[in-house]
């Protein structure tokens, strides 16, 4: 991976992964397995994990860029 990238990878994949999660939850809802009204917090969890991930990796990237 390149270090001169202006956008860190976790930030770029945040949207797509959230979208996939949303689609999965809605598909589960429509299949009658788990209602979206009950499963939506999974979006928060996935979003939170991605942000944590971004801070961990993004932090090293930033430090690398600053030094």
């Amino acid at each position: 991976m390149t270090t001169n990238n202006p956008t860190p990878l976790p930030q770029a994949i945040f949207g797509p992964i959230m979208l996939i999660t949303l689609g999965t939850l809605l598909a589960l809802d429509h299949a009658g397995l788990y209602g979206f009204s009950r499963t939506w917090p999974a979006l928060l969890i996935v979003g939170g994990i991605l942000k944590l991930f971004a801070r961990m990796i993004g932090g090293t990237f930033n430090e690398g860029g600053q030094s």
């Binding site: 959230m18 996939i20 689609g23 809605l26 598909a27 429509h30």
Partner: peptide, 11 residues
């Protein structure tokens, strides 16, 4: 029934 898979494919 299957439109959520459009979201998944899109993502």
């Amino acid at each position: 029934d299957y439109w959520p898979f459009i979201l998944i494919a899109w993502g």
